[in-house]
């Protein structure tokens, strides 16, 4: 995709989002769109480490909850405005990503995967034992009175999340087509060969875990204002972690567009199933889609599309 077309498309999507807030008042749509965007942001973040670098993170919900609970704590302690809370969530998430990567990335990749899973449980244990942010019982968050020029707070949150997701798409695209992106892909394809080609593998992997952690922290930061009641079981929900893996895997991990396509497809399906069938079914569907796709179409939708295009032009 040409650069001008790409930035034009991002601007057009953002403008469309703004226009929507002027035309539609029904809050249900903003709720649904917010959830889809949140899942997309998580999927894009997961893919930076999982897709570009080849390391699996099972603990996405932990990073997400770090962002959410950073907001809870700082909102209660200092009452910071939303943009600062988002920055703080990103900073804490990035730091945890860096620390976890530093601890485990020098070992075989599977240890990193296991460590992420265990990390989510440890952070959950910490939060459960931390009464200041509500402990196991959870806590209520008051939605601020102000919502700029928007009709409702949820409309503003939707626009904020749209902006964050578009920024993540841009970062992900820049990363994948840059020198760093080629270094990450080299690590994913063959780490030994990458080192022999001069790629500083540990440092690049740490860049990757840090960016991923920061993006996930950012995705979680506005969450308390969206749900207004946060407890460990909602912030550390396994569903968040499964979505973060399933969407890139279904969309295709090798390309920056993969997680976006996967998130739109799976996220939209989920919102429809939630309304028409039941919310338990919508949880099951993503698990089944994940297993079916990685077994039968390991390159995801982007991979299928590429194969199709190649076959059409001889």
């Amino acid at each position: 995709m040409k650069s001008a077309a790409f930035w034009g498309a991002l601007a057009a999507i953002f403008a469309a989002g703004l226009a929507l807030t002027g035309a539609v008042a029904n809050e249900y749509y903003y709720n649904a769109l917010y959830l889809i965007l949140q899942a997309a942001l998580m999927a894009i973040a997961w893919n930076i480490l999982g897709g570009f670098t080849g390391y699996v993170n099972f603990g996405s919900a932990g990073f997400f909850a770090i962002g959410a609970y950073t907001t809870v704590a700082l909102n209660k302690a200092l009452g910071l405005p939303l943009p600062l809370l988002i920055l703080a969530g990103g900073a804490v998430g990035g730091l945890v990503g860096l620390g976890l990567g530093y601890l485990t990335l020098r070992l075989k990749g599977v240890y990193f995967a296991i460590a992420t899973l265990a990390m989510a449980i440890v952070i959950e244990t910490l939060v459960i034992n931390w009464s200041y942010v509500g402990g196991a019982k959870g806590t209520y968050i008051l939605t601020p009175e102000k919502h700029l020029w928007f009709d409702s707070y949820i409309q503003m949150l939707f626009v904020v999340m749209l902006l964050l997701t578009l920024a993540a798409v841009a970062i992900s695209r820049m990363l994948s087509s840059s020198r760093i992106g080629r270094g990450l892909a080299a690590i994913r394809d063959d780490e030994v060969a990458a080192e022999c080609a001069g790629v500083p593998t540990l440092r690049l992997k740490l860049v990757s875990t840090t960016v991923m952690g920061a993006m996930m922290g950012v995705a979680g930061a506005p969450f308390p204002f969206f749900v207004t009641f946060v407890d460990p079981s909602s912030a550390f929900n396994l569903f968040i972690a499964v979505n973060a893996i399933a969407m890139p895997m279904i969309g295709g991990t090798a390309h920056w567009l993969g997680p976006v396509i996967g998130a739109l497809l799976v996220g939209t399906t989920q919102e429809i199933v939630k309304v028409t069938v039941s919310s338990e079914m919508n949880v099951l569907i993503v698990g089944v889609m994940l297993v079916v796709f990685i077994t039968l179409a390991p390159q995801g939708i982007v991979g299928l599309a590429r194969k199709h295009l190649r076959r059409r032009k001889p």
């Binding site: 080629r182 892909a185 080299a186 394809d189 060969a193 990458a194 080609a197 001069g198 790629v199």
Partner: peptide
């Protein structure tokens, strides 16, 4: 490498960009 270790997701040209952009 005795057993070739290409960067399998990349084109031949991009395979060479990696050492050019890092080692060299």
């Amino acid at each position: 490498f005795q057993i070739p270790k290409p960067f399998a997701s990349m084109t031949v040209l991009d395979n060479l960009r990696v050492p050019l952009e890092y080692a060299a």
